[in-house]
Design a protein around this nucleic acid. Structure first.
Lengths: 340, 340
DNA sequence: CTCACAACTGCAAGCGCTTCCACACACTAC
DNA sequence: GTAGTGTGTGGAAGCGCTTGCAGTTGTGAG
């Protein structure tokens, strides 16, 4: 394999100068820089990042920790982060926690401590003080997506406000019999996201003077399949059926739509459905939603990290609220008189 | 940060012995091994993988290259590979090519050559001779998923046989008016997967003496959305409508089901639909499919690579066919007499 | 003409490990 | 007894880069 030594030889320069020329750091005359570049490209030289990292301490690699790669939100974040990192010349090391709690433990107590990443992006994961401390002790900045992280930067959306906005959209159309599909307790552990959205829903309902019926708050696991099952139960009793469903995620809204179709309910005539996310399928199904631009959040996380890192600065913890947008499609409408 | 030196000091051993003790390679007395382990864990020592890689040449990191992270098949492969790698103590570096052709170029001509990965898993990507050569020159074994890779190991399914099996399932039920949703040309570049499945479909039809109607072969981009649009066109002309649709992927089958519902077609009464994949949504929608266990393919790819690597052997190129399974659910049935 | 200073360059010391080699020692086999 | 074998250990030479430092040159100011 050709190393920097070969390049130096060919260019008639020292290894040190070639290193500086190629990295762009330090003073190098234009002539030398050009010669180094030419020699490198003639030899097809590609820097060994191990050696570079060992010597410099910078790895050009960012760790991305996600709870799952299947759910829409996470894969959208991965996509956004991945593209931004690729553009910046950074590698992306993916840690998919999955269902296994042991995996989470080894990711935070082993993998991430191997000094292989310059920074960590944690998606929808509430890190413990100890976990954050460890990473900070190693000078590894952290950006959290999806919730507040003590002492770390975060990118998030205002879940409570969004839930109120969504609920108000339905209320504004004239719905009063509104059900809510929230997340299971298991999903409330990390950032209490389902709880926050649910509270937002309840507040909006109370503000409008609409009763919140406990039996119309059902929970699922944030997947289409899970919400499908939950919605079937919710919609089973024809005489006492909500006229609208607000689901805490688009995937759960989609599950609801599928369940509604099974009962022959037309959307939005017999049932209005809305979600939160901006899922790609929303278009096909005409789903009204609040788009949270997950891809953009992933890209923003990368920019947040890389700015200070490339300048050699320390990342100041900051809390960035990502904008969201109500997208009205055909799954919500004024309730038909008959359904009241 | 504590290094191996600190551990050696604390354990009263040399750095060399500690290294051997912790890595498990070479002869170390049980006493020394235990002392090294104790000292390491007391100090919370975690190996620096950069230094380790630089010295040993092994990186404990595998590169996974995918065309997209959104499509079901790819995220399932990622999930399977990710879990298997985590178990083995390996990092997973994800390269998501995406839509941008430049990204593909830089991944293969820059990122993967940085000597940061021990091996490469390429999913549904047909590598050029040059790309394979480069990686082989660096002694980086490659495993391809989804198609033959000259000189590399591959894991794949028999697309032609599967397509015939699927078609035969529909023919066996009595369908003769069968449409096929195939992939766009853009998706035929890499492993000609859409083309192969389409040929299988046509062969089975011919063998059964059923005419293949060109206007009943439509193409989409492998997404639910794309197939939805294509299926709408296909199903629009009521008088001349197929009684069954075989889609080249589950996502496209799902798009077809959604489109059918828009036309008020009941499944399977008015239209039988089947796909290929084993998509999670298949259960909810009652989709008949051929399960190809994408997660298992990802895990198998990892095992295929890691076996030889950990033993220090060279990976012998081998072509492994992954088993598939016909899963009959409620989206396919005997055609109703009226629809003939 | 000298001096201070900046711009450029090379030497060499690491970065934190792995592993070759040499050596010490304890055996077994003759 | 000696030679041969195997096990356990430490010294030290790298792995392929980056970067502090010092040295060389060129420049404008005094």
């Amino acid at each position: 394999m050709t190393g920097i030594k070969d390049v130096a030889e060919r260019a008639g320069l020292s290894v040190a100068t070639v290193s500086r020329a190629l990295s762009g750091k330090g003073n190098v005359s234009p002539t030398s820089r050009e010669r180094a570049r030419a020699a490198a490209s003639e030899l097809g030289f590609v820097l060994s990042y191990h050696a570079s990292s060992l010597a410099s301490g910078r790895t050009h690699n960012v760790g991305l920790v996600v709870p799952s790669v299947h759910r829409w939100f996470f894969s959208a974040v991965i996509e956004g982060a991945s593209a931004a990192l690729l553009e910046a010349g950074y590698d992306l090391t993916l840690y998919n926690i999955g269902e296994n709690p042991e995996h989470r433990h080894s990711v935070f107590n082993d993998f991430l401590l191997r000094k292989r990443v310059d920074a960590v992006i944690a998606v929808s994961l509430e890190l413990s003080e100890a976990e954050i401390q460890q990473l900070h002790a190693m000078h590894r900045p952290i950006v959290g997506i999806g919730g507040p992280l003590p002492g770390a930067s975060t990118i998030r959306i205002d879940d409570s406000a969004i839930a109120r906005k969504a609920t108000n959209h339905l209320l504004g159309l004239g719905h009063t019999k509104i059900a809510h599909i929230t997340g299971n307790e298991a999903y409330d552990q990390d950032f209490h996201l389902p709880g926050t959205r649910r509270s937002g829903f309840e507040e909006a309902m109370n503000d409008a003077g609409c009763p919140v019926r406990p039996e119309w708050i059902v929970s699922a696991d944030f997947t289409i399949e899970g919400a499908y099952a939950a919605a079937r139960q919710l919609l089973a009793s024809a005489p006492d059926r909500p006229s609208a469903v607000f689901a805490a995620s688009d995937e759960m809204a989609i599950g609801t739509i599928l369940a509604a179709r099974d009962f022959g309910l037309r959307i939005p005539d017999d049932l209005s459905v809305m979600g939160i996310d901006g899922h790609d399928l929303g278009n096909v199904l005409g789903l009204t939603t609040i788009d949270q631009d997950a891809k953009g959040q992933g890209a923003l996380a990368v920019r947040t990290l890389l700015g200070p890192i490339t300048k050699g600065l320390v990342l100041e913890p900051a809390d960035t609220e990502h904008p969201t947008q109500l997208v009205v499609r055909s799954s919500t409408a004024v309730p038909k008189a008959g359904t009241f």
